[in-house]
C-alpha cells in the first residue's frame, strides 16, 4: 500500500473521529451497543435482518452521536445482503485481462489463469466491495458529496444518469488538470471538493491511469476504485478488484452504488441528520 493511500485512510479515520462527540470508549467498541441506541426510542428500522430501535431525530449534539452510533454498527445500511458471489460471477466481474498485461499490485487478487486470461478471485472481491459500499453509504449518510468517475464511453450515459438520479455528482469527461489541485483558480471560488471519489474504471485511456486518482490522493480525498487485473491499485483508498470493461459488470456496480446512496439518504432523513428545513420544523 502506498504512502498516500495510508495517509488518506488515516485522515478519513481522523475526520470521522473528530466529528464524533461520543466518548472514546464508545468509539473503541467494535459492536454497536444496542441498548445505548435504544435509549433514543423512536421508529423501528430493520438492520441486518435484526429489529432495532432506531434513534429518533434529535437536534444539536445528539444528532452527531446518532451518526457515530451508526458508524459502530456492522452493517447499518443492510448492504451485505445486496450482492453475492454468484451475482458477481453472472455479471462477469471475475474476467480480467490477458495475463501478460497483469499489474503486479493486482497479483494477490488473481485466482488463476485460464486460456491466457486472468481470473479475479471473487471471494476476495466480495468483502472489499461490501466494505466500499459501506464506506460510500456512511459518507453520504453524514452529508458528504460523492463524485462518480468513469472514462468508459460505452457506459458513460448510465453513470451520469445514476449520479443525477441519486442527487450526487459525476465527471465522465476528459479530466482537466487541476480540477482538485488548482480548484480555486479553475472555479474562481474557494475550492469545493467531493468527500469521496468513486472510480468505476481506473483507466483514462488503455495506456494511462485516470488523472483524478492522483489528484484526489494528493488532496487526501478518499477514493473507491474498481481495479481490473491490468490496473495499479496503489493510489486508491478502497479498491475493488473486478472487471471494469464489461457493460454487465458496470451496470451491476451502478446498481449497487445507487442502492447504497439511496439507502444512506433515506436513513439520513429518517435519523434527522438532513438539514432539510421540513425535517426540522419546530412544531
Amino acid at each position: 500500500m502506498s504512502l498516500y493511500s495510508r495517509m488518506i485512510r488515516w485522515r478519513a479515520c481522523q475526520s470521522v473521529k473528530s466529528c464524533c462527540s461520543l466518548h472514546k470508549t464508545a468509539l473503541s467498541r467494535a459492536k454497536v451497543n444496542l441498548e445505548q441506541v435504544a435509549r433514543f426510542s423512536g421508529s423501528k428500522l430493520v438492520c441486518n435482518q435484526q429489529e432495532v430501535e432506531a434513534p429518533t431525530p434529535m437536534r444539536g449534539e445528539e444528532t452527531e452521536s446518532v451518526a457515530d452510533t451508526a458508524l459502530q454498527h456492522d452493517d447499518y445500511f443492510g448492504l451485505k445482503n445486496l450482492v453475492t458471489v454468484r451475482d458477481l460471477f453472472e455479471a462477469r466481474v471475475h474476467l480480467g485481462h490477458n495475463s501478460g498485461l497483469r499489474h503486479e499490485s493486482m497479483s494477490p487478487y488473481i485466482f488463476g489463469e485460464r486460456q491466457g486470461t486472468d481470473i479475479i478471485d471473487l471471494e476476495q472481491t466480495l468483502p472489499l466491495l461490501q466494505h466500499a459500499l459501506d464506506v460510500c453509504a456512511h459518507i453520504v449518510y453524514r452529508g458528504g458529496m460523492v463524485l462518480f468517475l468513469s472514462r468508459n464511453q460505452q457506459t458513460l450515459p448510465w453513470v451520469e444518469r445514476m449520479a443525477q438520479e441519486v442527487g450526487e455528482y459525476s465527471h465522465c469527461r476528459p479530466w482537466k488538470r487541476g480540477i482538485f489541485t488548482n480548484a480555486s483558480s479553475i472555479f474562481s471560488t474557494l475550492p469545493i471538493y467531493p468527500e469521496l471519489c468513486v472510480f468505476l474504471g481506473t483507466q483514462d485511456t488503455v495506456f494511462e491511469m485516470h488523472l483524478g486518482i492522483v489528484e484526489s490522493s494528493k488532496l487526501l480525498i478518499p477514493s473507491i476504485g474498481v481495479v481490473d487485473s491490468n490496473c495499479d491499485n496503489s493510489d486508491l483508498t478502497y479498491h475493488v478488484p473486478g472487471n471494469d470493461d464489461t457493460p454487465a459488470a458496470i451496470h451491476l456496480y451502478l446498481r449497487l452504488f445507487r442502492e447504497a446512496v439511496t439507502r444512506a439518504k433515506a436513513k439520513r432523513k429518517e435519523d434527522g441528520l438532513s438539514l432539510d428545513p421540513v425535517a426540522y420544523d419546530e412544531s
Binding site: 452529508g143 458529496m145 463524485l147 451520469e160 449520479a163 443525477q164 442527487g167 450526487e168 455528482y169 459525476s170 465527471h171 469527461r173 482537466k176 480540477i179 479553475i186 472555479f187 474562481s188 471560488t189 469545493i192 467531493p194 438539514l275
Partner: peptide, 20 residues
C-alpha cells in the same frame, strides 16, 4: 458577475459541476 454555483451547505447545484 457569475451567480454562486453552489448552495449554503457548499453543495454545487449542478450534478456535472466538477466537469467545469
Amino acid at each position: 458577475k457569475k451567480a454562486a454555483q453552489f448552495g449554503l451547505d457548499g453543495r454545487p447545484y449542478h450534478w456535472l459541476y466538477f466537469t467545469t
